[in-house]
């Protein structure tokens, strides 16, 4: 592995309407790098879901995308409430989103399962009361 390229974004937790902006920017950047369309789509979907999660559950956080010649890694880091039971959270349909969020059409419990589905690797580390860190990789 020679070099890596890092894109860093602050995901604003107060602004629900701007959620998803980082994934749009990442998509643009990856397109400029000449990454193939399917890989871009996978990264973009995973990143978008992660971004929305950070806004809904954690009051925002930091998203970092690293590009190497072998993979694209998305690191999502927040200081939210943490996930009590990761295994349960990974189940399709499981959600702790409040009704206000559900009424907006989010919170269907597909965020984490989709992130796993669209990436080649996904690791979650979370401590209740401290925060959550999710690392995802999509191989190029």
């Amino acid at each position: 592995m020679s070099e890596e390229l890092i894109f860093r974004f602050n995901v604003d937790g107060d602004d629900f309407t701007s959620a998803g902006q980082a994934s749009v920017q990442v998509k643009k950047n990856l397109r400029q790098l000449g990454i193939d369309a399917e890989t871009i789509r996978r990264v973009s979907v995973a990143m978008y879901e992660g971004e929305i999660n950070m806004v809904i559950h954690a009051g925002g956080g930091v998203a970092e995308v690293r590009v190497t010649d072998e993979y694209i890694e998305i690191v999502l880091d927040d200081h939210g409430p943490g996930i009590k039971n990761i295994e349960e959270a990974m189940k399709a349909g499981f959600s702790t989103a409040p009704d206000t969020i559900r009424s907006l059409g989010f919170g269907a419990g597909m965020g984490l399962p989709n992130m796993k589905r669209y990436t080649d690797e996904m690791h979650i580390t979370s401590t209740v009361g401290v925060g959550t860190k999710i690392v995802m990789r999509v191989n190029i």
Binding site: E3, N29, Q32, L33, G34, I35, V67, D69, I140
Partner: peptide, 20 residues
């Protein structure tokens, strides 16, 4: 045919250097 309008370099490695 797909003509990516924004690709920076000829290869991904070159594009990465350019983006840096």
């Amino acid at each position: 045919e797909y003509h990516p309008m924004s690709r920076l370099g000829k290869t991904i490695a070159e594009s990465m250097r350019m983006m840096a």
